[in-house]
Design a protein around this nucleic acid. Structure first.
Length: 115
DNA sequence: AAGGTGACTGTCA
DNA sequence: CTGACAGCCACCT
């Protein structure tokens, strides 16, 4: 496991319940702004073993991945955490995106007030 | 070592 | 608004 991978995993595990992050957002928080696709790869291969809240990671358009398949379990998870979806099936990133400052370490992330 | 790949993203029409 | 395109980066073969 590379440092980058470890960082990404730490970031994802730090996403609080009821909030989401974009792939690019995770990449930025991990210190590699353009590595969104690598984040994808990590989720794809590590989500099982590391108990990652992968369902809290969505794309920049606010849509969940694989939403066409099997009714998208991901949406159900998110709904269960209080996240709401727009009429077009996307989540309001302005409202639910969790975007820590780049300087912060995952342990220092805090839960922004949700209003 | 070179080339392929992906649960992505920003830009432009 | 939607869709096509071309970068993108770290990892895998």
């Amino acid at each position: 496991m590379t440092p980058f991978t470890a960082k990404v995993i730490a970031v994802i595990q730090a996403i609080p319940e009821g909030r989401v992050m974009t792939y690019g957002g995770v990449a930025r928080a991990a210190g590699s702004p353009r590595a969104a696709r690598q984040v994808v790869r990590i989720l794809h291969s590590m989500s099982q073993k590391h108990k990652l809240p992968w369902h809290r990671v969505i794309n920049a358009k606010g849509r969940v991945a694989l939403e066409d398949e099997s009714g998208s379990v991901q949406k159900l998870y998110l709904l269960g955490e209080g996240i709401t979806f727009e009429a077009d099936g996307s989540v309001n990133l302005e409202l639910f995106q969790f975007m820590p400052e780049p300087e912060q370490e995952p342990e220092d992330y805090f839960l922004p007030p949700l209003e």
